[in-house]
Every structure is written in structure tokens, then in C-alpha cells.
């Protein structure tokens, strides 16, 4: 796996996101308040603006979600599924935390920028 070191774990505020460039793709990285770090595509598929990293983190039932800051659709942070629009999905990136560093891998469906 081609991991990208994006930042230190303590650079991330719990339950808040940060944008990152991973192999040319825009990624939103979230450190959840109960421990895990997750990463999804940063592009809001509904507005097509790169803003998901600035959305609020929360839960819908048992699922951890991020809410688009533009029109508040919820996206599952584990599966990438949009819970408010059928068939809409955002890419999910693998994340590893090693020695206090956050490493993000590529997602097959991530949009590339030349």
C-alpha cells in the first residue's frame, strides 16, 4: 500500500476534520472522539465542492457520520454511504496511525487531479 503521511495524530482535533492531499486526491481525515481515525473523499458529491472536511461529525443511530456543511446530508464515515440520498457514496480511504503519525492510503474511486 502506498501510504501518505498526512500529519501527526495530535494535529487533529477530536470530532473535527482536516483536508489532506493523498496521491493527488482530496481527502477528509477525521479523528473521532472515541479513538479511531477515518478518512473519506473530501468532495461533497451533491454540491461538488471540496468541503466535507469542514462538516460536523456526529452519529445517526449507531453509525458515525459527517454532515456536509452545505446542505447537511449525512455520510457514513465507515462505508461512505450517503444516508440522505439513495445511491450516493463517497470514497473511503484506509487509515493507519503509526508512531503518532496518521497515514492515509489511496481509494480506488477517489477523483484524481492531474
Amino acid at each position: 500500500m502506498n501510504w501518505t503521511d498526512v500529519c501527526a495524530l495530535e494535529d487533529l482535533t477530536p470530532d473535527r476534520g482536516a483536508g489532506a492531499l493523498v496521491d493527488g486526491a482530496q481527502v477528509a481525515v477525521f479523528r473521532l472522539s472515541d479513538g479511531p481515525v477515518v478518512a473519506v473523499g473530501n468532495t461533497d458529491p451533491i454540491s461538488r465542492a471540496n468541503v466535507l472536511c469542514r462538516g460536523l461529525v456526529g452519529s445517526r443511530g449507531a453509525r458515525a457520520v459527517v454532515f456536509s456543511p452545505l446542505h447537511k446530508q449525512a455520510f457514513d464515515l465507515v462505508t461512505g454511504e450517503c444516508l440522505d440520498a439513495e445511491g450516493v457514496r463517497i470514497p473511503v480511504h484506509p487509515v493507519e496511525v503509526r508512531a503518532g503519525r496518521v497515514l492515509v492510503g489511496p481509494a480506488g474511486t477517489a477523483r484524481r487531479i492531474a
Binding site: 494535529d11 483536508g19 489532506a20
Partner: peptide, 13 residues
């Protein structure tokens, strides 16, 4: 910033 790992890079989109 737009990118935590590239603080000076603006969002190219």
C-alpha cells in the same frame, strides 16, 4: 488550510 499536509496549497478546484 485546505490541506493539513500542504498548508500553502489552495484548493485547485
Amino acid at each position: 488550510t485546505s490541506f493539513v499536509n500542504a498548508p500553502d496549497t489552495p484548493d485547485p478546484d
